[in-house]
Write a protein that binds this DNA or RNA. Structure first.
Lengths: 219, 219
DNA sequence: CGTTGTGAAATGATTCACAGCT
DNA sequence: AGCTGTGAATCATTTCACAACG
């Protein structure tokens, strides 16, 4: 299994397949078909098969996909068959909402450090996490093998936080600040921007009930 | 200006253009060019021009785009030239983080109601918002002309909350639950799913420094 | 000049449709 | 019969390249 070219939309769907398969497994299902996965996720069966076939031949003609087998494969592909240590930078509203989010750990992401620049919160403990000063960041990121940084600071500070994280060795950044981060090409950035999402909603809604935008779900 | 077909990727970029233009205006810039907008956002100039040309001829050859003019146009197109009343359902971690988010109002979104099903929080006031029981939802959505609902409840409850919101008259839903919502085609849904984003990050990072995924920014 | 708007070409993603396996 | 994997066809989006404009 060398390195297949992965279309970006496919990459996003991989996580969705995994999620749906886990749900089906919880319901006691032993196998699933591309048809079944597709209808659950609003996709065509052909789409599902194309996506999965990129990585190998996981399916069994006449049967479908064996759920435990495919789950294991997807976890390996997505890198969630191991655990990832992450740091949250910014103990404001968003950072605080993220800390107690138990599902993180259940999915293999462990928050092992929290940083903030505000002396008023440094030293306090939130949801079991001690808030540390930014000056501790380089050392802790290295010591605790943190590869993922979560930026939950105001837009004005986001770029310099990103720079600090990258310099310390972080390889992936989840960015909640409404700003485009400029990063080296060997670092991955994924942004969560709910203001943008709200605006998309306003746009689609104001296009009116008979929208001229595609009629497919805006998932 | 009838109803142009708007490619979905274009719709997302429209908000980005508006944001960048506002930043440039704050810096005192009177005009901007497709080249300048493009480099600021990691896009080609041709892309920017194509996107904007869908809605009319806003540019001035040799000059570029007059910033105040284009901002006004984009606001009108996106529907953010007016104010939108929104309701938050779910006063848990995420809901609570959203309530004090001042930027919402600044961008034309006003949280005018908050609902939860937990008797322990109903009646309490969070960030100036009184938490109301779900039974108040239908009436309040109508009375306060709420067109946008923000779902911040656990996945298991999300679909029924969506149904309740839509029945009450909401036309757009911002969904924070990690689940696909089944909605009528006249309702728009946009999802914010940071577990998904984290997994994308893990995927890209584990593909290794020399990723086989596109080398462009993972914005 | 510099910059727009836009057909034409190139690239990318999805769907079709069917041979082949169980 | 039911279902996968996949080449070919279709559809969508981006980039190119250039005439026209101020």
């Amino acid at each position: 299994m060398p390195k297949p070219r992965v279309p970006r939309p496919t990459a996003k769907r991989l996580s969705l397949y995994l999620r749906e398969l886990e749900a089906q497994q919880d319901r006691g299902q032993p196998t699933s078909s591309s048809k079944q996965l597709g209808t659950a996720l609003g996709l065509t069966d052909a789409q599902v098969r194309k996506d999965l076939a990129i990585f190998g031949q996981f399916g069994h003609p006449g049967i479908g996909y064996k759920i435990p087998e495919l789950i294991a494969q997807l976890r390996k592909i997505l890198g969630t068959d191991r655990s990832w240590n992450a740091a949250i930078v910014g103990a404001g509203n968003i950072g605080r909402a993220l800390m107690p989010y138990a599902r993180f750990r259940r999915k293999g992401f462990e928050i092992v450090a929290v940083f903030d620049s505000d002396p008023a919160v440094i030293g306090s403990v939130i949801a079991g996490h001690k808030v540390r000063p930014m000056s501790d960041l380089p050392q802790l990121v290295r010591e605790r093998n943190i590869l993922i940084g979560i930026i939950a600071v105001p837009a004005a500070a986001a770029q310099q936080v990103a720079d600090a994280l990258i310099k310390a060795g972080v390889k992936g950044i989840l960015n909640f600040a409404p700003i485009r981060l400029e990063v080296d090409h060997h670092v991955s950035v994924d942004s969560v921007d709910f203001l943008l999402s709200l605006e998309q909603l306003a746009f689609q809604v104001s296009l009116g009930l008979a929208g001229s935008l595609d009629e497919r779900d805006g998932e």
